[in-house]
């Protein structure tokens, strides 16, 4: 539990990074959200066996990290936390797809290994893009942008509350768990039945709290819309940012740049 707690509490580091002042953080959140979405679509829609064609896409996260001066080790650590999920998705590919796809200096690489590598690359690209988005925009900024972009209000509200009460919920769960640990000896008292009632407790407490929060919101005139007094502004820099990157993604996606580069070098060598 302690590990999960500390991993979650680290989320506030992202918030701190987002509150710094740099050209990227100052951009309108909507533009960053849209650009990141375009990036993810471009990366995910690449072919199953693409590996080298994905490499140019690393320019996007690398450039943003450089501009916003984000701590690389922190982002890598976050990537590692999420990595098991991607590993699980791709780990069986080498067994199910042993058909040779590529000859590399005498080595035969199977389709399974290619698609596995591709999955890991795509995971790294998309998750780091999402992390960078939050680290330069803040979670609240992302929610606000989603709302202004026309995402359903209920959905945005849920996200905001999830973010606000995640810590309270973890606290509550950790307290229950601590109380259980203190009174269970030699593994006794840790049965599934006890766990069930523990979760039930947590649910009931959460419902109670939800009711109190709703009451607090009503007290201050809540009518279904969350208003925030942030001024958003799309100017020349925003348009340039989005258009520039969109063109770049289109280029990466349609032309196989590493291949062209290889051909160019080959021709120069001749």
């Amino acid at each position: 539990m302690a590990k999960i707690e500390s991993a979650f509490f680290d989320i506030s580091t992202l918030d701190r990074l987002a509150s710094r002042d740099n050209p990227l953080n100052r951009l309108d959140p909507r533009v960053k959200v849209v650009t990141t979405l375009l990036f993810i679509v471009a990366v995910v829609s690449s072919g199953k066996y693409e590996v080298s064609a994905l490499l140019p896409f690393f320019l996007f996260p690398c450039a943003l990290i450089a501009v916003a001066d984000l701590p690389l080790d922190y982002l890598l650590k976050k990537l590692l936390i999420a990595a098991p999920f991607a590993l699980l998705v791709g780990v069986f590919n080498p067994f199910f797809d042993p058909a040779p796809q590529l000859q590399l200096n005498g080595f035969t690489v199977s389709g399974g290994w290619l698609s596995f590598t591709s999955i890991m690359l795509r995971f790294t690209l998309t998750v780091s893009a999402a992390l960078i988005l939050v680290a330069t925009t803040s979670f609240t900024g992302v929610c606000l942008a989603l709302e202004r972009l026309g995402a359903p209000r209920v959905f945005v509200l849920q996200l905001l509350f999830l973010y606000r009460y995640l810590f309270v919920l973890i606290d509550e769960g950790a307290r229950l768990n601590r109380a259980l640990t203190l009174r269970s000896f030699n593994g006794r008292g840790r049965s599934l039945k006890v766990l069930g009632s523990l979760l039930g407790q947590l649910l009931l407490r959460t419902l109670d709290r939800a009711q109190r929060i709703h009451m607090a919101m009503l007290c201050r005139g809540f009518d279904g819309e969350v208003r925030m007094s942030r001024q958003l502004h799309i100017g020349g820099r925003e348009v340039l940012f989005a258009a520039g990157w969109a063109c770049a993604f289109l280029l990466f996606r349609t032309c196989h740049l590493p291949q062209s580069l290889g051909l160019l070098i080959e021709r120069l060598m001749e």
Binding site: S138, F139, T140, L160, F161, R164, A216, M228, S229
Partner: peptide, 14 residues
């Protein structure tokens, strides 16, 4: 229960 917005300022402005 009462402070439900992302920052103190947002909450006071709510």
């Amino acid at each position: 229960d009462q402070l439900f917005m992302p920052t103190v300022r947002d909450d006071v402005a709510f």
